[in-house]
Design a binder for these strands. Structure first.
Length: 448
DNA sequence: TCCGACAAGGTAGAAGTGAT
DNA sequence: ATCACTTCTACCTTGTCGGA
């Protein structure tokens, strides 16, 4: 045995003495090393068990009840808030005074032309994953709806996989009361998933024919220009001014459920119920807010005003969209200035207001819109019959392209287009001035 | 008469984004 | 991994007009 290993052994014995002092109160007199170690492990394990809180049952943490039906049983919980309580700055009582046509404007879907949020059901599911397909189940389904003067959130929960048939059965009965549905990305996520679960349980999917307002896409149209993200919780922070404390990140939810099924400890699961409840209330508040933006023109940031104008234009509300584009311009929309001018000019051209369109293209060209110079060239050559003015616009574009170089997207294509236009115009000018009067507005083809 | 250019619409592909 | 929907871009279609 070397001096080194003796030294090591002494060190370990000293360390054992220290451990015994801290765990047992004093070093042991027991001569057997093995016995001393076993005693230490026993005491430490016992202490750990005593200090760790016992698993808490679901019923202790979430107010709810066991529900039984012909398919088995599941867990149901309900909470509610008064409609006058503001979520962020939005009172849910506003549901009742919204115009039923507003959702139709937000979505530009004729099927949603009459949509009453106060009669709709708001739905959000928590699932065992993101993958979809037969392997992913919705273990928690939350519904939100107006009942009297309150907004009620009802949550259907399966405590284990065998409770799914009972959950789906009760859920179908409840959903049958509603003629309209609101979700956030439900078209892509919640509905296909629930549809698959009903299919696997050989039950007709209760939401197959229900008019469905998926807020994700209108939200992107309204707010994407200003906000970096249009995830539900980003909208919650930016638009409702709410910040969740102690919220469970979505990606942890499946694991929390798997742990609950295995260990019956509901401590983390209670946070999933709260997460789901907040998602539903926020969804309702954001749906109201989106409608308010359309009805009241609430947008203030010029980027939002521009986005609102686009939503209105998409819904063919041209007078209002023109007014919002002009309001955006007055507020200085920065990089969106050129785009707003181009949109206004395109409208003016379609309504035959060619002088107004030309003035807008001129402004847009000054804001760096290369396409505005192309439109100006067309306008002067074909509408005004002034090839000289057209050539001027083309030369401006070519000079600009030369200066900006490859920074301009599609620079080569533009350069080719302008060069072709230029040689044609020079030919025209060499052959002499045009013979006829300016062209009338063409007869537009009837829409298909 | 033929062809190029345009208006206004349609279609298709690519890339990005949300949901757990 | 999934995919409905978005914007952007390119290209196609139909009809009209004017110049060669």
């Amino acid at each position: 045995m070397s001096t080194g290993s003796l030294h090591d052994r002494l060190q370990r014995l000293r360390r054992l003495d220290q451990l015994e002092s801290s765990i047992l109160g004093q070093p042991s007199a027991e001569p057997s090393l093995k016995a001393r170690l076993e005693r230490l492990v026993e005491v430490a394990t016992h202490r750990e068990r005593r200090m760790a809180p016992a698993a808490l049952a679901l019923e202790e943490l979430v107010q709810g009840m066991r529900v039984e039906n012909e398919r088995g049983e599941f867990f149901l919980t309900e909470t509610d808030v008064h409609l006058e309580v503001r979520h962020g700055d939005v009172p849910l009582s506003r549901f009742r005074t919204l115009d039923p046509g507003t959702v139709g404007i937000l979505t530009a879907e004729p099927a949603l032309a009459r949509f009453d949020l106060s009669q709709a059901v708001f739905l959000d599911t928590e699932t065992t994953g993101l993958a979809g397909g037969a392997g992913t189940a919705a273990f928690l389904v939350g519904l939100g709806f107006v009942e009297g003067e309150r907004f009620r959130v009802r949550q259907y929960f399966m405590r284990d996989y065998h409770e799914e048939p009972a959950l789906l059965h009760a859920l179908a009965e409840d959903l049958g009361r509603f003629r309209q549905l609101v979700t956030f990305n439900g078209k892509m996520f919640d509905l296909p998933l629930l549809d698959a679960r009903y299919r696997l349980n050989r039950v007709r999917f209760p939401l197959a024919e229900v008019p469905h307002f998926d807020l994700l896409h209108p939200a992107r149209r309204l707010w994407r220009a200003r906000l970096e993200s249009c995830r539900l919780q980003a909208l919650e922070v930016e638009l409702l001014g709410l910040l969740r404390v102690g919220d469970l990140p979505g990606e942890q939810i499946p694991q929390v459920y798997f742990d609950y099924v295995r260990r019956r400890d509901a401590r983390a699961l209670a946070r999933v119920f709260e997460h789901n409840r907040q998602d539903i209330v926020s969804l309702a508040a954001l749906a109201v807010l989106a409608c308010q933006w359309v009805e009241e023109g609430r947008a203030e940031d010029p980027r939002d005003v521009y986005s609102l104008a686009r939503v209105l234009e998409r819904a063919r509300l041209y007078e209002r969209s023109d007014a919002e584009y002009r309001r955006a311009l007055a507020l200085d929309p920065g990089p969106l200035r050129g785009a707003a001018l181009m949109r206004l000019a395109a409208r003016a051209r379609r309504t035959g207001e060619h002088a107004i369109a030309a003035a807008l293209w001129e402004e847009a060209a000054e804001s760096g819109e290369l396409l505005a110079l192309r439109e100006l060239a067309v306008h002067h050559e074909h509408r005004r019959r002034e090839p000289g003015a057209a050539l001027e616009a083309v030369d401006r574009a070519l000079r600009w392209l030369e200066g900006a170089g490859s920074e301009v997207p599609r620079a080569r294509r533009f350069a080719t287009d302008f060069a072709k236009r230029r040689s044609r115009l020079i030919g025209k000018l060499q052959r002499g001035a045009p013979s006829t009067s300016p062209r009338r507005a063409g007869t537009p083809r009837a829409p298909a």
